[in-house]
Amino acid sequence: MTTTRHVLGLSGGRDSAALAIFMRQRHPEIEVEYFFTDTGKELPEVYEYLTRLEGYLGKPILRLNPDRDFDYWLKSYKSYLPSAQSRWCTRQLKLRPFEKWVREFLEAGETVISYVAIRSDEEYREGYQSNKEKLLVRLPFKDASIDKPGVIEILEGSGLGLPDYYKWRSRSGCTFCFFQQKIEWVRLKTEHPDAFEEAKRYEKNAIEHGSPFTWSQGESLTDLEQPERQEQIKLDHEKRLARARTRLQANPLRPDTTLDLDDVYGGAAKACLTCHK
């Protein structure tokens, strides 16, 4: 008899956590296996949030650790940093471990249903595209018309709330994620100076090996961390934030708590779905 596995990937981010809560509340009859693909370079707040989420779900979250770490793949890619043009970090550290994990189930004849936290207000995003007949993708938030305010309502209603890093950063993922806005790099230096220094070392090594990319587009972290440059970035951010708040006033039904850096910078459509959900 064919068996079916139900899996849900967690990034340590807002949407996937809300989907895990949603599935537990709305579909308690489904035995969902929760997993987290750990790159080893995640924010400390991500690990803390996953521990709290385990407490709410009442079951462990499986950690899928890649058999080869970031440093291995960096060397394999000739010390070139991952970038929006070449997202080898997502491919090798997120997708590859997931595909390896589910392959044994598929080869055993099982059907695997993967639940992905794409919201109803994210028409521009696509989920993991499976080319396997028995690996099926489901989008519960789309089906239930749950948007970003709905996600926040789920998290607040559960008592879990948002991950702590949302106070200064817009998404989960590696400490040196190239999708960070410049204001997030400035804040990383304040919140996690050791992680910022590690990112600088990776960048310096990459430049010495001829990498055409820096972590932040158009400038190195050494340039970005200069006091005058940091002040300029902070000032620019405040101006952008003020403009974004003005636009929100046209919709009094939308609470200000839903305003995040993606609203300010319009970067949501570009970010890696696998890492940041």
Rank of each mutant, 00 (worst) to 15 (best):
I61T: 08
L259N: 02
E54M: 01
F179T: 12
L57E: 10
D236I: 03
Q180V: 03
L53C: 08
E225R: 14
H237I: 00
R14G: 00
G161Q: 09
N205G: 01
T274N: 03
R201C: 06
F22Q: 07
D262Y: 08
L10G: 02
A206Y: 07
D164L: 05
I233F: 06
L136Q: 12
P66M: 03
C174D: 00
W168R: 04
I207D: 01
R14F: 01
R63K: 10
V7M: 14
I154C: 08
Y128W: 12
R169F: 07
Y49D: 06
L261D: 15
H27F: 14
K200G: 03
P44D: 07
D236L: 14
R254I: 15
D236A: 15
A244P: 11
R125M: 10
P255A: 10
K167G: 06
R14M: 10
A199W: 04
D38F: 05
R68E: 15
P227E: 08
K75I: 06
T258R: 10
W73P: 00
F36P: 00
K148C: 00
R245Y: 14
P60Y: 02
K142N: 10
I146F: 05
Y165G: 02
G13D: 05
S83V: 06
W101T: 05
E208S: 11
K239R: 14
R240I: 00
P97Y: 06
K204E: 15
F98D: 01
I61Y: 13
Y165V: 00
A195D: 15
I146E: 05
F179P: 03
A18W: 02
D15P: 00
S86L: 13
E54Y: 07
Q181M: 06
V112Y: 06
G40D: 05
F22M: 13
R14T: 06
A268K: 15
E126C: 07
Y124G: 08
T37L: 04
A195C: 07
K200A: 05
A117M: 07
I207P: 01
T222S: 13
I21Y: 07
